[in-house]
């Protein structure tokens, strides 16, 4: 089977600093890849490069479209690319205010992608929004509240609903649980785990939290100073780390 996503040689420099140095990996449908590392390791830059939000200095990102054809994202027109991003891809951001429209109701936030792809039936959009709010455990009576009135955990769940409403096949997540209380984190992680399995989503999740990587991911990519230090099965890398840096990383945290 051809991979869903093929990343090759992604490189990005900021001045003299190498934020990403020749990163490559593939992702299959339904596969969850965790990118772990400390702040400044380049893991968030990698996500921005994959999403095409930051232009790479070198390297390529190829994606297998719904019609089966694999295309280098650089060869897509802006229109094709944006359509892809708001239908077949999702991006859950660490800062919910970057991923949501804070002045728009929860229902409007979930419905935006539907309206973006041309749905013009209010009743249907609202019913779909209600369904998704239920799936992310947001009470139906909150549908008309703006996310400014939501807790941090609810905002992240709303982001997830907003992204998943068009049934994307690939979701990028940038530290989706950081900054949340531990109990709120657990609930969110469990929800993500369930949805990923149920919907067969391919996910790239960037996290500094090895416990998050262990709970959600099949494979892990350890980054440091813009380079991939070690990669492999998540439980193998976390329990039998080979690289000196990975050993340090694993030993530096509470039991994961």
């Amino acid at each position: 089977m051809e991979p869903l996503l093929t990343v090759e040689g992604l490189t990005k420099r900021y001045g003299r600093r190498l934020a990403c140095d020749g990163i490559g990996f593939t992702l299959d449908p339904g596969e969850v890849l965790a990118v772990v590392g400390e702040s400044g390791s380049g893991k968030s830059t990698l996500l921005s490069l994959v999403a095409g939000e930051v232009a790479a200095d070198a390297g390529s990102v190829a994606y297998r479209l719904r019609d089966g054809a694999t295309r280098d994202l650089d060869t897509l027109s802006v229109v094709e690319r944006r359509a892809l991003m708001r239908t077949d891809w999702g991006f859950v951001r660490q800062d919910a205010t970057q991923g949501l429209r804070m002045a728009v109701s929860a229902g409007g936030n979930v419905g935006e992608r539907l309206m973006g792809v041309g749905d013009r039936h209010y009743g249907r959009i609202r019913a779909t929004a209600l369904d998704w709010l239920a799936r992310v455990e947001i009470a139906p009576d909150r549908i008309d509240d703006p996310p400014t009135r939501f807790s941090g955990g609810m905002r992240q769940r709303l982001q997830i609903a907003r992204n998943l409403v068009t049934a994307p096949r690939l979701v990028l997540m940038d530290e989706p649980t950081s900054g949340l209380d531990v109990s709120v984190q657990a609930r969110l992680l469990d929800m993500i785990r369930g949805l990923v399995a149920e919907l067969g989503l391919a996910v790239i999740i960037v996290t500094h939290d090895l416990a998050v990587a262990r709970l959600l991911s099949h494979r892990v990519l350890v980054m440091r100073a813009g380079r991939v230090i070690e990669t492999g099965l998540t439980d193998q890398v976390l329990d039998d780390p080979q690289a000196a840096y990975t050993q340090l990383l694993v030993s530096s945290v509470l039991a994961a």
Binding site: V78, V79, R82, R101, V104, S105, G107, G108, G111, E112, R113, M115, G116, V117, G118, R120, Y122, I125, R126, I143, D144
Partner: peptide, 16 residues
Amino acid sequence: LAEYGLMHVKLYEDIA
């Protein structure tokens, strides 16, 4: 790009 979904978000908000 004639991406006018947002305009309907505004109308959605009105109805909601």
